[in-house]
Design a protein around this nucleic acid. Structure first.
Lengths: 130, 130, 130, 130
DNA sequence: GTGGTCTAGACCACA
DNA sequence: GTGGTCTAGACCACC
């Protein structure tokens, strides 16, 4: 697995795992329909308790990223269709207002900032029809 | 004061206040050297415990955003010079990787995303020498 | 066979099979005395482990829905007479309390709800003597 | 608190609590905006572990039934607006097909069944405009 | 083997 | 005081 967990981080472990799985999907490292390790396997790989992984998988399921089969475990939702809801957009805009404000004051130029966005998007496979 | 606190938010109240003060500085709504309300005043305005505001002011001071005078209270640091440290940059890049990944998967286009950045930066007054 | 199994469902596979067989009886699609596929046949059709089908047939037998002959396999109980026990009624009432509460809160009107009941019952052949 | 938990039931404890809270909202026993006991308080009242209650509250929050304030604990969402989504309707219709089929075969008449629905709905306060 | 549930106890962040 | 996180270990249902 490709996960790198920072145990000393303020960000909860389960959140880091969630983030990296979603990032893995965006980058195409995790294909739709691909199996994820079992809760106990992944927990053992990372060296954490399986309940923590369980929490991750359950939240990912709630939000539609993965499906949990009765027996075969967890896989990336083959019919992934997470939505650009107004709530999501609102939260994102709010976040960006905060982030850009501090970045600006710390001397990050608009060009630098946009370059990062460009770089990230460059790593994501194009959508159908684009 | 221009603060809007969402008590039901996941974001801690003290964090919301910090964010909005920093945003206020970036937007020029709070001038360098401008006085902030007293701890008790602001706490009363928002309707929260003054310990929370105290925490905010202390953290803002630690990070160099404000200076605290014994008598005159708290003011925006007239010689504001927060730094673009490597740690800050690293954290920001990490954050953007996570945020853009989910945004991409939810159907936010690169252009949309960049437009928000542009819009935000457009609201920030240019620095001296720019 | 008319079974549609949703492997990603929360409902256990064996439960889905049971439900659909009972529904088939109610709708008259499965006649009393009619043979059901063999354990291995049905398991193979659905693509599941035959132990699962075994479990279903045994439970159906326990509850009186089917009879199992040594040679001829499993058939719908020709003298089907499942009972309206107090325990069953109690469980059903309890279930309906929960279901109607959420339905009401989600905006399902009483009329809508009753219409579904009517529609379902309309599909069930009348019993002898009615 | 008005909760009655059946520890010997097949239904998980956390599910029973969820059901009864939702039922309480529908019946008007729990008003919108009303505080729920703290996780530890409720757990102690029922005689279970607080993690179980925590799970309930988190799921109720995810589904929009309650809001969790940082300090004041959990309250029924004052702006409760759970939706009659197509997925919900589909699941409900599926459930009713299964339930009515067995009920019919066990001798529950349509009239009986509908009477229960009527009785339940009779306990729910009328919506605005009705 | 898989995930789901429940218990128990610890520590932390927040207000 | 509140909820949030993490650990640890048990037992169960399902397949």
């Amino acid at each position: 697995m490709f996960l790198h967990i920072q145990f000393e981080s303020e960000v909860p472990i389960y959140q880091q795992i969630k983030n990296q799985i979603i990032r893995g999907i965006a980058l195409g490292e995790l294909k739709l329909g691909e199996d994820l390790p079992s809760v106990r396997q992944l927990a053992s790989d990372i060296g954490i308790n399986f309940h923590t992984v369980n929490k991750v998988y359950n939240q990912l399921k709630q939000e539609g990223w993965v499906v949990i089969h009765r027996k075969s475990g967890v896989m990336i939702n083959p019919e992934l269709k997470v939505e650009k809801t107004p709530e999501y957009i609102e939260g994102l805009e709010e976040l960006l207002k905060t982030v850009t404000a501090e970045a600006y004051l710390r001397g990050v130029t608009k060009e630098e900032f946009i370059q990062w966005i460009e770089n990230n998007y460059a790593g994501y496979p194009l959508r159908e029809g684009e």
